[in-house]
């Protein structure tokens, strides 16, 4: 059974690498934030799988919930920032309002 969990963890790690591609290449900043959020969700599952492999699930569960909450708050904070800034182009601020005037 341990081998099974190790394989699943490796598969998740491979998927993390694939999502990292969008984080590096992604055309806008928002794509990168989405990629970070996706990686965070996979890491939450991976942490509990690590707990199963080391036979200390009760400890790793607490780490995992802390990671999930931090990931959620980070995504929300970044979304709020770009919601107020109204531009995803670096160096250009309040892009929309200037266009209106």
């Amino acid at each position: 059974m341990e081998n099974f969990f190790l394989t699943i963890s490796l598969a998740l790690g491979f998927l993390v690498l694939l999502s990292l591609y969008r984080g590096v290449v992604g055309p806008t900043v928002l794509d990168r934030i989405v990629s970070v959020g996706v990686i965070g969700t996979k890491t939450t599952v991976m942490l509990i799988l690590m707990g199963l492999i080391y036979k200390r699930v009760d400890m790793f569960v607490d780490i995992s919930i802390a990671y999930a909450m931090l990931n959620f708050i980070a995504t929300l904070a970044a979304a709020k920032f770009f919601h107020v800034r109204k531009s995803v182009i670096p160096g250009v601020r309040f892009y929309k309002e200037r266009e209106v005037k």
Binding site: I33, V61, S64, M69, T75, L76, F82
Partner: peptide, 26 residues
């Protein structure tokens, strides 16, 4: 409980980022 938290938090984060993208002119 972690699964329940993700179940609540993930749609909220998706909605927040989509709204930010709409407001930021993507």
């Amino acid at each position: 409980l972690i699964a329940f938290f993700i179940f609540i938090a993930n749609p909220t984060a998706t909605h927040a980022i989509t709204r930010a993208g709409l407001n930021a002119g993507v």
